[in-house]
Simulated assay, not measured.
Amino acid sequence: MLEACVADGASIGFLHPMPAGQAETFWRDVAQGVAAGDILMWSVLEADGAVAGTIQLHPVGKPNGAHRAEIAKLMVHPRARGRGLAVALMRTAEDAARALGRRLLVLDTIEGSVADRLYRRLGWTEAGVIPDFALKSGGGSEPTVVFWKRLPAV
């Protein structure tokens, strides 16, 4: 799924084409973070067991950040888009953050992307734009938008 999302233009930390083994290394690292309790992750599976979408929540471990977390690596496989999976995954992560007592969430995404529009629709607030933040597969760079969202108490 990671390779399919990157090939489809998702800016989630990788460039297309991905070198052999890079996706496997990424998922291995995520699994270690989940096992250590540093990352919470949810996935949506297709009827055949294939992953259709995933999202991560990274609670801040520093004492002065115990009230916040970062949303990371929201991905929906290109063949599964248009079914509301991204919205469902975002709501799941936000609900989990709230249950953990996290009152502030942050994330970033490429300016003008489908994800940018999604976060705005879901009530996220733009904090600012960082120019030339992410390299593009075809060369050059693009800006990222940093967003934040306050969560009401449980």
Score class of each variant (00 low, 15 high):
residue 76 V to I: 09
residue 96 A to M: 10
residue 93 A to K: 09
residue 98 R to N: 09
residue 98 R to T: 12
residue 113 S to N: 08
residue 105 L to K: 01
residue 92 T to V: 05
residue 94 E to H: 03
residue 96 A to N: 12
residue 81 R to D: 00
residue 73 K to W: 11
residue 112 G to Y: 11
residue 113 S to A: 13
residue 105 L to Y: 05
residue 114 V to A: 15
residue 92 T to R: 15
residue 84 G to Q: 07
residue 106 V to N: 10
residue 106 V to Q: 14
residue 71 I to D: 07
residue 114 V to W: 15
residue 118 L to I: 10
residue 87 V to P: 02
residue 79 R to S: 14
residue 78 P to I: 07
residue 106 V to T: 12
residue 99 A to V: 00
residue 96 A to D: 12
residue 86 A to V: 00
residue 109 T to H: 11
residue 97 A to R: 03
residue 87 V to I: 12
residue 75 M to C: 09
residue 118 L to Y: 10
residue 74 L to D: 04
residue 91 R to E: 14
residue 70 E to V: 07
residue 120 R to Y: 01
residue 70 E to M: 11
residue 86 A to E: 00
residue 85 L to V: 03
residue 79 R to Y: 03
residue 96 A to S: 10
residue 102 R to Y: 03
residue 117 R to Y: 07
residue 108 D to V: 06
residue 119 Y to K: 12
residue 100 L to I: 02
residue 108 D to L: 08
residue 80 A to K: 03
residue 75 M to F: 04
residue 110 I to F: 04
residue 86 A to R: 02
residue 113 S to Q: 05
residue 88 A to T: 11
residue 72 A to P: 01
residue 102 R to T: 02
residue 117 R to H: 15
residue 110 I to N: 07
residue 71 I to R: 01
residue 121 R to I: 01
residue 105 L to C: 04
residue 110 I to Q: 15
residue 116 D to F: 11
residue 99 A to H: 06
residue 80 A to H: 07
residue 74 L to E: 04
residue 96 A to G: 10
residue 92 T to Y: 01
residue 107 L to H: 02
residue 78 P to Y: 08
residue 114 V to P: 08
residue 91 R to K: 13
residue 75 M to N: 00
residue 108 D to M: 08
residue 76 V to C: 02
residue 112 G to K: 08
residue 119 Y to A: 09
residue 104 L to K: 07
residue 82 G to K: 04
residue 104 L to Y: 08
residue 90 M to T: 02
residue 75 M to T: 03
residue 117 R to C: 14
residue 119 Y to M: 06
residue 91 R to Q: 15
residue 103 R to F: 00
residue 113 S to T: 11
residue 115 A to Y: 09
residue 77 H to F: 05
residue 119 Y to Q: 09
residue 95 D to G: 12
residue 72 A to V: 06
residue 96 A to V: 12
residue 76 V to L: 06
residue 98 R to D: 04
residue 102 R to V: 03
residue 99 A to E: 14
residue 78 P to N: 10
residue 69 A to M: 04
residue 121 R to D: 09
residue 69 A to I: 00
residue 100 L to K: 08
residue 116 D to V: 11
residue 94 E to F: 09
residue 79 R to G: 06
residue 93 A to F: 01
residue 74 L to V: 10
residue 120 R to H: 13
residue 102 R to G: 08
